[in-house]
Amino acid sequence: MDKKPAIYHFLKGFWDENPVLVQILGTCPTLAVTATAVNGIGMGLATTFVLVFSCVVISVLRKLIPNEVRIGVFTVIIATFVTLADLFLKAYFPDLSKALGPFVPLIVVNCIILGRIEAFASKNNVWLSFLDALGNGFGFTLTLIVMGSIRELLGKGTWFGIPVLLSFYKPMLVMILPTGAFFTYGTLMGISNALKKIKS
């Protein structure tokens, strides 16, 4: 297959292969923590941290890990970085940690991480794996921010806690409930698919 320039592997995570809207991975945290924009960005950055470090470490070790134990080894490495992220949040951002709740430990089983490792980091060099992980992580974070913003604005009238619409808008409570999460997710996916079709 044709060779792509290194920068493509970074950029593809934003649009062409957006983990949330195109690859449809990591839907559980996407639906659960995007009731507010700040939670979205917190989860996105925590996941990006775990994704980048796990991918880099595994890419470095890829020739040393036997195929038969790769799932176990990958999971231990991923879980270690997730625990580190969880400890960090509990220490320096306790409110965010409480708000994200059990979804921080659940980053261990976030499909984006194992997905990128299996599809890319375990078969490519460190630099490309780093770019791929960073791009996917940032793409994930940006999508969460968009979803969180929409849900928070429509569901609470605030944005990052700042009351933006409350003077004239009565918030639609459903947007911060699970129903609203599915609506927003589906609509965003539909819009992105439509834009891709128009482009091509």
Partner: peptide, 11 residues
């Protein structure tokens, strides 16, 4: 042996 060494060391 490789399997055992890899998983044990990583752990």
């Amino acid at each position: 042996t490789k399997m055992i060494v890899a998983l044990t060391i990583v752990s």
